[in-house]
Nucleic acid binder design. Structure first.
Length: 418
DNA sequence: TCTGGGGTCCTAGGACCC
DNA sequence: TCTGGGGTCCTAGGACCC
């Protein structure tokens, strides 16, 4: 048996934990650069504001309904996510943290699953202050489906178990597009074939699903019928790709400013790389202009640089990133966004050395970076940084005009009770 | 004025090997 | 008329997820 626990409007709920005045009020959390709505309270959803909707398009609604708007505060959200996950471990030793706001739990030997789901929900609410929905079923896909229904229909009070008795009835209520693994394109295709609900999909021919929706399609059909094909992934798997990409607060045209941004993104990505004890072979860089500004000349490009030996040494990675940038940069354009992606990631325990590179060089790298990471971890992000990231005003920095306090990570920003 | 960021998996096709 | 058979690795593009 699997349970899927999913936090409701997670980012909004996080803001509410430290600002209870926001309960029952319409609240929106914005994407980086204060661009789009990426989390909406139920009050906001009712107003018809969509996921990812640009905020400038809904200015009037925001004013009219006095919607509270926040910049994304990922430090806070990550911290609360951790609290939720730790609490969930009380309910099963086998847990897969699926995303910042979701986890799968393997359940066995529970006699009353209905009651167990409610208990999970109540405990998270009481201990962390975040409302969650719980779906329980024989497979992950069904647990997802149960969660979906539990969240949408108040009569289930946030928790639902799918079993052989109610499977058909529940699946018939779910749009096929809401099934885990069915996205925009597949929905269009399936609708054309006369398949509209999760139950329709469950009744598809396996070979047909395999042919038209690839192996993931066949798995979906099997899972919807109660045959578990996707197992619980409990162990930590290092990422195969690490990216840091940002839109700029202001359009930029200068190569030197872009170089600072790219150095900064490389630095962030390299920190993550070292954190998972990996090294990377390739540094990819892209830049592009603002596609929404049709009156501007448009340009976009990307390039890759391959390292002689895989590394996690920031200065070396920056050197390669800059070389790529130099190659793809064209003057005279207004750039809106840039990004750095590290690829070809391997464990730092099994580095393939290069015949032509002295091993000592590599040793140096091994010592400097952990020292820097250690200092930054202890004394705050960017206590130590590289000069190539820029020392003066960083005018490319993203906008973040409505951020809440770092209630859980900065002494100066703790909640004031009185 | 203004439109996010970060991932994974699968498949087809090309290059190459013997 | 008629040109083999069996593999691997890599990449790009498309689908999906949150």
């Amino acid at each position: 048996m699997f349970a899927l626990v999913d936090c409701n409007n997670f980012f909004v709920s996080c803001e509410r934990v430290f600002n209870p005045a926001l309960w029952n009020k319409p609240v929106i959390v914005l994407s980086n650069n204060d661009g789009c709505a990426i989390a909406r309270s139920s009050e906001v959803k009712k107003l018809g504001i969509g996921m990812g909707q640009p905020i400038f398009q809904i200015k009037d609604l925001v004013q009219k309904h006095n919607i509270q708007v926040y910049s994304a505060n990922f430090t806070l959200y990550a911290d609360l996510s951790h609290r939720v996950m730790e609490t969930l471990r009380q309910f099963s030793p086998n847990i897969e943290v699926y995303s910042i706001d979701e986890a799968f739990l393997a359940l066995s030997g529970i006699s009353d699953l209905e009651e167990y789901g409610k208990r999970i929900r109540n405990t998270i609410w009481q201990w962390v202050g975040i409302p969650v929905s719980v779906g329980i079923a024989q497979t992950k896909t069904l647990a997802k489906a149960a969660n979906e229904v539990a969240k949408k229909h108040p009569q289930y009070q946030g928790s639902l178990v799918i079993d052989a008795n109610n499977r058909q009835q529940i699946l018939s209520k779910i749009d096929v597009g809401d099934v885990w693994g069915v996205g925009r394109q597949y929905t269009k295709f399936l609708n054309r074939q006369g398949i509209y609900t999760a139950f329709d999909l469950a009744n598809c021919d396996l070979a047909w699903a395999r042919k038209n929706l690839s192996v993931s399609g066949e798995r979906m059909v099997r899972e919807l019928n109660g045959q578990s094909c996707i197992s619980l992934n409990e162990i930590f798997l290092p990422q195969k790709e690490i990216a840091c990409t940002r839109s700029f607060g202001h359009l930029m045209t200068d190569l030197s400013a872009l170089k600072q941004a790219v150095a900064t993104f490389t630095h962030r990505a390299a920190e993550k790389l070292r954190q998972q004890e990996s090294v990377a072979w390739q540094v990819a860089v892209f830049i592009h202009t603002n596609r929404h500004r049709q009156q501007d000349w448009q340009y976009a490009n990307y390039g890759i640089s391959v390292l002689p030996i895989p590394s996690s040494y920031t200065p070396l990675l920056i050197k390669h990133a800059h070389a790529v940038l130099q190659r793809i940069y064209k003057s005279g354009y207004w750039y809106k966004k840039a990004g750095v992606i590290l690829r070809g990631i391997n464990s730092n325990q099994t580095v393939q050395l290069n015949l032509l590179t002295k091993p000592e060089t590599y040793q140096d790298h091994k010592q400097i970076m952990p020292t820097m990471d250690g200092v930054n971890q202890k004394l705050g992000q960017d206590t130590l940084w590289l000069a190539s990231m820029g020392v003066g005003e960083r005018n490319w920095k993203m906008r973040q005009n409505h951020r809440s306090n770092n209630f859980t990570s900065k002494w100066e920003e703790l909640v004031v009770v009185k």
